[in-house]
Amino acid sequence: MGRVFLPTLIVEVTRACNHVCRYCYNFWTHPDAAGTPNPPERPGDLRSLLAHVLEQVDCTHITLTGGEPLLRDDLHEVVSFLASHHLRINLITNGHLLTEARVADLIRRGVTLFELPLLSFRREVHDALCGTRGAFDAVLSALADIRTYRGQAVIAFVATRQNIADLYDTLKLAFAFGARGVMLNRFNPGGRGAVYLEELLPTLEQMTEALEMAEAAAKEFGLPIFCSIPIQPCLIDLAHYPHLTSGFCAAGSERAYYTLDTAGNVRPCNHTPTVLGNIWQETFEEIMASERLAEFVAARPAFCDPCEWRDECQGGCKAAAQVCYGDLRAEEPFLRANRHCARR
């Protein structure tokens, strides 16, 4: 059995969640996915699964996500197990269940980076986007505790029409609470988010203004800001924002973030519902060599064919196109809304 090298592997440890975020990208929260069975989440099974994967995969980082990972009673054991394999562990959480004791315990067990949403400096805006009262205060409390226990945290700002004007002050707040970096994610519809596409998708002008705010904040505070959802170069020239970093879809490359669920299903990334294979039935090497992955990687909107950036950009997020329009080759929502502005 050949071993494969992956910098990062994403593990969805549960589909359950205690928030109802309007921007949620998890495909199983899409109304069309209602009624589909969730993968099993029996304690012990996940560690067996991870052991099986780690026999085949050399990776340096594991990202634990969900749903809300802290809803798993055995999360601390999973973290200890991964730490015993000398992996760096990122935990993506909404922070609502991150009590001081849990922060201390998780850091002690080996969580190296917490990723929390911070959607506004205003409580009401953050809570409305999360669909949950108390979400804002929980995030700030968790950030304070993480710093107290010498952990590291980054925040994710999902840029929507409803909060994008708050970006600069939110970055200030993140910096004040000791965030080590910011993921500036333009709203990328998928899952429940697709339902709110019209009211949440920022305009091109709003996104451009957000990047200007982020550039200023990155310069002023020295805070690394990552534009984590691809921004099409034909729509916005990122060269104007030298203090921001950005990237494109890495699916299929060695730097892809393959996503694993508790049943052992492997997907090209956490935004797509496309299952490449199951780790109990095939090796990771076989899954990475599958035709399904080749099709996923090759998919690109016809609109992009004449573009000089087509191979790097690939049209943006094909998973969003897939979830919103049922086709990996469709123009994803941000491109579709702004195609008339594309520089060709």
């Binding site: 980054v154 910096f175 004040a176 505070f221 020295g222 984590s228 959802i229 970093t245 973030y257």
Partner: peptide
């Protein structure tokens, strides 16, 4: 170069007490 979605090092490290004072002020 960074890939999409995943954050990558280097992360912010305060360099001096001036940075910390700025955090306190904010």
């Amino acid at each position: 170069p960074i890939t999409c979605y995943i954050i990558a090092p280097p992360l912010y490290e305060f360099q001096s007490n001036v940075d910390l004072a700025q955090q306190a002020e904010l």
